[in-house]
Design a binder for these strands. Structure first.
Length: 427
RNA sequence: GGAGAGAUGGCUGAGUGGCCGAAAGCGAUCGCCUGCUAAGCGAUUGUACGCCCCAAAAGGUGUACCGCGGGUUCAAAUCCCGCUCUCUCCGCCA
């Protein structure tokens, strides 16, 4: 959510900055409603003040045993009037909040303008594409041949875009989760949490999934609970409605969760393999910072995500999203794209964003400045560290050998606990 | 799933219709005092929104908030209704 006072005073500027996202937004209705709200508010507050003054007098008169019935009839009318105006304010505020909750975040000043993915900027490459002396195969072929990815049974059990992981793939997935969590908690200083995988409407609204993107979510029938599309939601909501101590910032959390996405509107895209599933695992990094820390912490957080790829020796690039490709809540985003030789393409494996105070304002997450004692909204950040399913895909495709077996990366050896770090077809 | 009890400020906890944004204690901050420490004394100590002032901050002023939402009343932390959450007991269960 944007700062309503900033918005009020910078209508043209905000329209201009939101336009860089590629959508024209007319703030005229906002200006009108906002003006109405203040007018009615002033009127109702004046009346309430009048009521309070008279009621105090009535209290005095009653104590003295004086007759105050002449005042009650008049005050009854005032109260009716107040009630009517309160109803009006509620209507105005409901309309206003719909607008406020559906306005996207302002892009960070460092974000380059652009219309879509084609305008994103590649900031760096790390490593090299593996040199294979055979034609690399896509992970779905490798996985089926090795009998570790069972797409047919996944869709039998549930439906399209669900996959059964077996044997080496199940172990690899579990090893990756542990590896990522161990790295972030032991070396990068994150505090591990394991949150609920279902959240309520308030939590979804706080991080920005609701009210606008309900069709992307799975909602549990007969409840107001939703399956989380990312750990960002429950973890950011840990501190919803709280005032944090400045000395505690930045707060850094790492969480493993499954993620559930309806993938509405993606029919026909990435239908083969593990790339776009309704359920996938992710290790997420979340930070709460003071405003002046958030730019630096985004760099750190992205470095931490990159460290996972580097230890796994996976070639990747860092991309800075242009204004037109930014997500709804994000002020600034870096994507990490890993090389997939089986498909001959770079594929997003992490998305690291600074949300500024956008989520913090929706969620009411603030901190108290030590020097002044004043409260301010924190900045929130999060990033995948990493998407586990896609990391598994990258390992299968990058570590495949001519005979179709998979050599497990050195960094994961401890998680194989003495077994030969190789995935091959059981004999 | 059934029965009961509860939800008040950073914390503990009083408050059953008006003098209550809320006693008292603890904690915290600032000051005083004591050679240090401890103790003691005094002051301050919620948030949001509107208006005034203002470059801004500070300040002034009004309104709202005692889990959430509605109702009764001239007036609600207090009475009534609904909901949420917590605790206890029973049932069920990993």
């Amino acid at each position: 959510m944007l700062d309503i006072r900033y918005l009020r005073q910078n209508i043209a500027r905000v329209e201009e900055r939101l336009a860089t996202r590629g959508q024209q937004i007319d703030l005229g209705p906002f200006v009108k409603l906002e003006g109405q709200r203040r007018n009615v508010l002033q009127e109702v507050e004046t009346l309430r003040n009048q009521r309070n003054v008279v009621n105090r007098a009535i209290g005095e008169m009653k104590k003295k045993g004086e007759d105050f019935t002449s005042l009650t009839a008049e005050m009854g009318k005032v109260s009716d009037r107040i009630k009517g105006l309160e109803g009006e304010i509620n209507r105005i505020e409901d309309e206003l909040s719909v607008i406020m909750l559906t306005l996207p975040n302002l892009p960070h000043e460092a974000v380059t303008p652009g219309g879509g993915p084609e305008d994103n900027q590649v900031l760096k490459y790390w490593g090299e594409k593996p040199r294979l002396d055979f034609t690399p195969r896509p992970h779905w072929e490798l996985g089926e041949d090795l009998d570790i990815l069972d797409f047919a049974r996944g869709s039998k059990i549930t439906g399209a875009r669900f996959t059964l992981l077996k044997g080496g793939a199940a172990l690899l997935e579990r090893a990756l989760i542990s590896f990522m969590l161990d790295l972030h908690t032991e070396e990068h200083g994150y505090h591990e949490v394991l949150p609920p995988f279902m959240v309520n409407r308030e939590s979804m609204t706080a991080t920005g999934q609701l009210p606008k993107f309900a069709e992307d979510l799975f909602r549990l029938e007969n409840t107001e609970y939703f399956l989380i599309p990312t750990a960002e939601v429950p973890v950011t909501n840990i501190h919803r409605g709280e005032i944090l101590a400045e000395a505690d910032l930045p707060l850094s959390y790492a969480a493993y969760t499954p993620c559930f996405r309806a993938e509405a509107g993606s029919y026909g895209k990435d239908t083969r393999g593990l790339i776009r599933q309704h359920q996938f695992n992710k290790v997420e990094l979340v930070k709460f910072t003071a405003p002046e820390q958030s730019d630096g912490e985004l760099e750190r957080l992205t470095d931490h995500a990159e460290e996972v790829l580097e230890r796994l020796q996976l070639h990747y690039r860092r991309v800075s999203l242009c204004s037109g490709d930014l997500g709804f809540s994000a002020a600034r985003t870096y994507d990490l794209e890993v090389w997939l030789p089986g498909q001959g393409t770079y594929r997003e494996i992490s998305s690291c964003s600074n949300f500024g105070d956008f989520q913090a304002r929706r969620a009411g997450i603030r901190f108290r400045r030590e020097k002044t004692g004043r409260v301010e909204h924190v900045h929130t950040l999060n990033g995948s560290g990493l998407a586990v399913g896609r990391t598994l895909v990258a390992i299968l495709e990058n570590y495949q050998r001519a005979d179709g077996t998979i050599k497990v990366p050195e960094a994961l050896k401890p998680y194989w606990r003495g077994k030969v770090p190789l995935i091959s077809r059981p004999s």
